[in-house]
């Protein structure tokens, strides 16, 4: 309905290719390409018209190009029958695509120094972000981590876009052995970083957010949470997030996120309802305490 909201399209597949250990599909979707801002995702129906797989699969948008009026690319690993079906698509097949969805990464007004941290295929949205930051004159440095060499994502393009690119693997098969957070302090110091952007698995994001807080750097993190609809309806993808008023709400990753300020996400409580979250058993007792400052905007959604 609105000009910058998501659209639903039947989009022809342009290419299906392999990128390292992942599959990449590019679809022609001009309306999605033109609305896209980095950090946003799309969702794809799988299995065809009479599919018994009802739920859409969400994917971060990895690349947007002006070809054919506008194309978008997303990446995935085959994890089940839905993604296996996607991997079998060929040029000119039609996909049911909804996007762009979610809140994008906020971009700095000034040309500041940005360190972009990604884990596995979760690094995908960092590439359009890097381009957007470079267009604003920002310095970009990458720290990309993965379990092993074949899971390190787009090492070549990372080196091409960024001032520096540091790689870490759990098994030491590529780059430095260890975690992204092991390299973060050095990279942020060398780059004189002003801000950290991160996306990847929840545990990694928690460590990055904590490290950024220790280094007194603001962090913007894009979370990965299982979704059923991607449009804010189903309330599946909730994450405990602290609001401006100090109250924790169960926020929907799909419409309230996926990008949040790192220090706002209660990573240690992900997968739980914190006792003091708005509408949780401990919330009322707490807000009724004498001296509690004002009533929060009572929104648990």
């Amino acid at each position: 309905m609105s000009d910058n909201g998501p659209v639903q399209t039947r989009s022809p597949v342009l290419t299906v290719r392999r990128v390292d250990a992942y599959h990449a599909i590019t679809v022609v979707a001009p309306q999605i390409a033109e609305r896209f801002r980095s950090g946003q995702f799309l969702s794809v129906g799988v299995g065809g018209e009479h599919s018994s797989m009802l739920l859409r699969r969400p994917f971060a948008i990895h690349d947007v190009k002006p070809d054919y009026g506008g194309t978008v690319e997303f990446l995935f690993a085959v994890r089940g029958p839905g993604t296996a079906w996607l991997a079998e698509r060929r040029s000119r097949d039609l996909l049911d695509v909804v996007g762009p969805l979610g809140r994008p990464f906020p971009l700095p007004r000034d040309p500041v120094n940005c360190v972009l941290v990604g884990g596995g295929s979760g690094a995908a949205p960092l590439f359009p972000l890097a381009h957007a930051l470079r267009r604003r004159g920002c310095r970009v440095d990458f720290v990309l981590g993965a379990s092993s060499a074949d899971r390190v994502f787009s090492a070549i393009s990372a080196r091409r876009i960024a001032e520096t690119a540091t790689f870490t693997t759990d098994d030491g098969s590529f780059g430095v052995r260890g975690r992204v957070t092991d390299a973060l302090e050095r990279v942020t110091a060398d780059a004189r970083a002003d801000v950290v952007y991160a996306c990847g698995p929840m545990a990694m994001l928690g460590r990055v957010a904590a490290a950024a807080a220790r280094l007194e750097l603001p962090a913007q993190v894009a979370v990965e949470e299982a979704m059923a609809c991607g449009t804010g309806l189903c309330m599946s993808c909730v994450v405990p997030v602290v609001g401006e008023d100090g109250f924790t709400r169960m926020a929907r990753a799909c419409v309230d996120g996926p990008v949040f300020r790192g220090e706002r996400v209660r990573f240690d409580d992900v997968g739980t309802i914190p006792f003091d979250a708005l509408g949780a058993p401990g919330w009322k007792a707490w807000s009724d305490e004498p001296g509690a400052e004002g009533a929060p905007e009572r929104e648990a959604g």
């Binding site: 018994s52 797989m53 009802l54 739920l55 949470e225 299982a226 059923a228 189903c234 309330m235 599946s236 993808c237 909730v238 994450v239 169960m250 992900v270 997968g271 739980t272 309802i273 979250a277 708005l278 509408g279 949780a280 919330w283 009572r298 929104e299 648990a300």
Partner: peptide
């Protein structure tokens, strides 16, 4: 207000879901 249950809150099942 109500915070609901922790995630995971849904799973896909044949031609439907459980939530």
């Amino acid at each position: 207000p109500r915070a609901g249950r922790p995630a995971p809150r849904m799973a896909e099942t044949p031609s439907g879901m459980v939530s």
